[in-house]
Amino acid sequence: MTFNRRRSLTGLLFLAPYAISFVTFIVLPIIVAAYLSVMQFDLTAKGSIHYVGLQNFKEAWADQYFWSGIKATLSFVILMVPSMLVFALGTAIGLNAMSRGRNAVRALLFLPGLLNVAVTAILWGWFYDGTFGLFNFLLKKVGIGEVHWLSEKALAMPSIVVMTLWWTMGGTAIVLLAALQQIPRHIIEAAALDGAGKWAMFRKIVFPLLTPVLLFVVITNTIGAFQVFGQPFLLTKGGPELATRGLVQYIYETAFNNYRMGYGAAMSWMLFAIIAVFALLQYRLLRRSVA
């Protein structure tokens, strides 16, 4: 047996534990969910499960709440992903440039990510509160009147984005910092000896070496943003006027409040299709920017 053959056989053994788990808890449920999406399966009427073809998908297409959910989700994604990327990359570069206290600051930035979504929402619900809120209290001190952070349509989603940035930025910055630190120092030193300036160094050396991890960060953040649920659900309940009720919340309410499993599954598939298109586009664009 050749060296490479033996290596890839060992590889199969290495892959097996994860692959088995993946097939059991991801692939199998996907098949079941696909089955559900073409069925009418309402838990309220017992025993009522029957084939309805594409009826669920057609219903979503004509459902105004489905579209308002997409609109709210997209506004979160568009606000969240670019600001996260700029903020986290800037922070990672800043951390990397620190000569003292880097680990302490890294820990501080990451700390908010340790809170669970319920705690985060309770805390920021108090900050944003119109009358008792901390932010309005501080604004009043400097002579600015009340701002309705969560009850004004134009402000509600940006407020949720700010809270989410505080909550999750540290994690993304840490991944980017780890990637920055994994760049072998001798490459940087060699470039510096060749007289590369700071910007040229970043563009020609750091950025290309960072691209696999940057790609990972952009894609996972986009996927996460499309699935936003907990923050608006707990902070605004999806209001005002459905401005923050994303698609996932609508799916959740359809499946677990109205017990329409089939319709919920069908809309989940549609959300998946949207996410897949976005992720694929990002993958293509970023890959090309390096090549």
Partner: peptide
């Protein structure tokens, strides 16, 4: 395929995994 599956909204799995 793994990365593709990550894009699937988590709630989709809830009912099938419960049954499993």
């Amino acid at each position: 395929i793994i990365v593709g599956a990550m894009m699937i909204p988590g709630q989709l799995f809830l009912v099938p995994v419960y049954l499993l």
